[in-house]
Amino acid sequence: MHYVKSKGILSANNGMNLYRGCSHGCIYCDSRSRCYHIEHAFEDIEVKENAVELLNKALRRKRKKCMIGTGSMTDPYIPLELELENTRKALFLIEQYGFGCTLITKSNRILRDIDLLKKINDKTKCVVQMTLTTFDEDLCRKIEPNVSTTRERFNVLKQLRDAGIPTVVWLCPILPFINDTKENIEGILDYCIEAKVYGVLSFGMGLTLREGNREYFYHQLDLLFPHLKEKYMQRYGNQYAIDSPNSAELMRLYHQKCEQNGIVHDNKQIFEYLNAFEEKRHDRQLSLFE
């Protein structure tokens, strides 16, 4: 861990990253890509020491309420969050100022903050986005080694459902020759159905590889799946988009199963929902005698 001072906290789209780098160890992580200019070791978490102060100023200055997002680059619930509580402090400010919020995570540590998530959702809208890639628990521990397993994340989704907090699942990435099976997709979608998620995002059955994350991914394939790297290199070379040979069949399954169970599966519609600020009114109707 190391600290930096930041000049700003919110992007043009009102997203924020309180940390840079990650300790989850997911073998496919796109955030390792060199285009993001993380100059330090990826597991050496960069902490924006003035992030909460900057957020307070930014929210106070905003004239129009909106959704505030976090988690696109670094999971807001990495283990370090239990010590620093920057995500919790940020949620407190978001709730106090009356903004909406959406978070992307793979960790059951989010349940620590369910009190704040409920308060935000009571006033406006709070959506938790959860990534699910691998139904098989043993395989999940191999490709996402330092994070809550898929079963544990499913239990989080159910608790959020019971708390009235809407959820969205990212069904990605799907790794060719590893988890690109009908059984895997059906298992994850069955979890989504039971948890009553609002929507499931999919960008095709595959993953993306570019300079930085490609090298790390191939190194992990050598360690975990001997000889599979050679199969990737022969089939895909240095392609950015890596599609599963089963992509068409699995995408049909994904769309059909979501459609049959009332789960939104149009990416554009889901992102519109995530970005739409909704102010809830709890005014009671006055009686004739008031």
Results as ranks from 00 to 15, higher is better:
residue 10 L to Y: 08
residue 13 N to I: 08
residue 13 N to L: 14
residue 14 N to I: 12
residue 15 G to Q: 09
residue 15 G to E: 14
residue 18 L to M: 07
residue 19 Y to T: 08
residue 20 R to N: 02
residue 21 G to S: 01
residue 22 C to A: 04
residue 25 G to T: 10
residue 27 I to K: 09
residue 27 I to N: 00
residue 39 E to R: 10
residue 47 V to F: 03
residue 53 E to L: 07
residue 59 L to N: 03
residue 60 R to H: 10
residue 69 G to P: 00
residue 70 T to D: 09
residue 71 G to I: 14
residue 76 P to A: 10
residue 80 L to W: 06
residue 81 E to K: 02
residue 84 L to E: 04
residue 94 I to Q: 04
residue 95 E to Q: 06
residue 96 Q to W: 04
residue 96 Q to R: 14
residue 98 G to H: 04
residue 106 K to D: 05
residue 108 N to V: 01
residue 109 R to E: 09
residue 109 R to C: 09
residue 113 D to L: 13
residue 114 I to W: 13
residue 114 I to H: 06
residue 115 D to A: 11
residue 118 K to E: 12
residue 119 K to R: 15
residue 120 I to Q: 03
residue 123 K to A: 07
residue 123 K to E: 09
residue 127 V to A: 12
residue 132 L to S: 03
residue 134 T to H: 07
residue 136 D to Y: 12
residue 137 E to D: 07
residue 138 D to Q: 14
residue 141 R to T: 08
residue 149 T to K: 11
residue 163 A to S: 13
residue 168 V to I: 15
residue 171 L to F: 15
residue 173 P to Q: 14
residue 178 I to Q: 06
residue 178 I to G: 11
residue 179 N to D: 09
residue 179 N to G: 08
residue 180 D to K: 09
residue 184 N to C: 01
residue 185 I to L: 14
residue 186 E to F: 13
residue 194 E to Q: 11
residue 195 A to D: 13
residue 197 V to K: 00
residue 198 Y to W: 05
residue 201 L to K: 07
residue 209 L to Y: 07
residue 211 E to F: 00
residue 214 R to G: 06
residue 217 F to C: 00
residue 220 Q to R: 15
residue 221 L to G: 08
residue 226 P to M: 04
residue 226 P to R: 11
residue 238 N to I: 11
residue 239 Q to E: 15
residue 241 A to F: 12
residue 244 S to M: 08
residue 247 S to P: 00
residue 248 A to D: 11
residue 249 E to Y: 03
residue 249 E to H: 00
residue 249 E to P: 00
residue 250 L to A: 05
residue 251 M to C: 05
residue 254 Y to R: 10
residue 260 Q to F: 02
residue 264 V to Y: 04
residue 265 H to A: 15
residue 267 N to M: 01
residue 272 E to R: 13
residue 278 E to F: 10
residue 281 R to T: 15
residue 284 R to I: 15
residue 285 Q to L: 15
residue 285 Q to M: 09
residue 289 F to K: 11
residue 290 E to S: 05
